[in-house]
């Protein structure tokens, strides 16, 4: 079972090491981790995808909360949250199949972000499933390099993960 955690942390050096170190030493599995600053420059937000049963998730949440630099931990409900990931694929192309790649890119509403003689770079944003799907199709042409950001996620509607005053 996968869970998506939204974690507000102090925007200070070393905080990422505290969080990632906690996961490794307690034996929790991180599927992905994305981090960036919030509208408050003192606070960063991490989106951590973790796999495990309810008991593991309970421990992860509690152990994260014990870190002094962690301000808030929320388990996002996937049915009530938007999730996005960005991926860049460098795909092998030649004269013959370039248009085929472009068609796939159009269908997925992805973007061609660079065109070279032998390669093209495809940028795609969306859910992890969507990115997996386009990756599967692009693999037929030969993928030279892949980079994915890991998931970020936000609640729909008025619900927020914010620092309580």
């Amino acid at each position: 079972m996968k869970h998506t955690l939204a974690v507000l942390v102090e925007n200070k050096p070393g905080v990422l090491a505290r969080v990632s170190g906690l996961f490794s030493r307690r034996g929790f599995n991180i599927e992905s981790l994305a981090v960036g600053v919030t509208d408050n420059p003192d606070i960063s937000r991490m989106t951590i995808v973790v796999s495990g049963d309810d008991r593991v998730l309970d421990q992860v949440t509690k152990q994260l909360n014990k870190l002094i630099d962690v301000i808030k931990v929320s388990d996002l409900d996937p049915t009530d949250a938007i999730e996005r990931e960005l991926a860049l694929f460098k795909v092998k192309v030649d004269k013959g199949n370039r248009s085929e790649v472009i068609q796939i890119v159009e269908v997925f509403r992805a973007q061609i972000v660079d065109v070279g003689v032998k390669t093209m770079i495809v940028g795609v944003t969306g859910t992890g499933d969507k990115i997996d799907a386009i990756e599967k199709l692009l693999r037929n042409f030969g993928i030279v390099e892949v980079v994915r950001t890991g998931k970020i996620s936000i609640n729909r509607g008025v619900k927020t993960v914010k620092l309580e005053k």
Partner: peptide, 8 residues
């Protein structure tokens, strides 16, 4: 006192 000890 430590919530992380509960049901660990």
């Amino acid at each position: 006192i430590d919530p992380a000890e509960i049901s660990k």
